[in-house]
Amino acid sequence: MAIKIKQSRTDRIFDAVVLVLMTLLMLVVLYPLIYIVSASVSDPDMVNQGKIWLYPVGFTLEGYYRVFQDAEILLGYRNTIFYTVVGTLLNLALTLTAAFSLSKKDLAGRNVIMFFIAFTMYFSGGMIPSYLLMKNLGLINSWLVLIVSSGISTYNLIISRTFFQNGVPQDIEEAAFIDGCSPVRAFVSIVLPLSKALIGVMALYYGVSHWNSYFSALIYVTDRSKIPLQLVLREILIEQQMKATMMQAGGFVDELLLDAQVRLASLVRFSVIIVSSLPVLIVYPFLQKYFNQGVMIGSIKG
């Protein structure tokens, strides 16, 4: 039988305050989501007139219809899924192996290597030198550039290294070595199975960053067949803004045409936001249990 603890008045007030604050916080987070969902299925004129607050007005699914008709959005979707899956696998392979090696105190030159890796957290070559480097490597306009150039995140590497140092008992590995296990075998058969929470969190971190990434593609990729979804989304959003400004400036252009484009873009804009965010929103609950376990991993660095 459960023991019921009687709450004091202060406890109840505290709970009530927490409840109110959390509800407000939830509304703050939830409202933009609801607004975007409502706007994506509303008449664009109503959105532009500021008549949407919560519920859809002038219900229409044309935005979604247009999104799935647009070959570039579908292509972007395909590319983003590819970059996310392949990129995340590569990230995990590189990060986990590097972190495992660096977690070994007997690794020669460990501190020097760590110094150079940590150095990149604070100083980078800058955009133009990076561009020149990629250009000289022949990676411009290649899908490889979007995966290789972000192969390891230093921050994630340090988290992983700390986890391997503190989260996996050294005694087990040593016992395995005594039994004749090689370091590779120890890593694959012992360390990795004990690190599911870490792998889950890393996959989530890297996966979401690949899914949301657009800047590398903006700099290195001009081939339309290789651009990711976020870049398509960005173009739709900015182009609409530019057209709205042009329309306001008046003048040479056929304003009726701009009107059609702006209306269409504002319809598509919200639908694309939903379509592009949905996969992450769907995947998140499945990874959440690892996230809860793993988010504290490596929080004590060193």
Partner: peptide, 12 residues
């Protein structure tokens, strides 16, 4: 207001 908003109001 941007052009799209003015436009929507004008058309209303």
């Amino acid at each position: 207001m941007d052009g799209a908003t003015i436009n929507a109001k004008v058309k209303a």
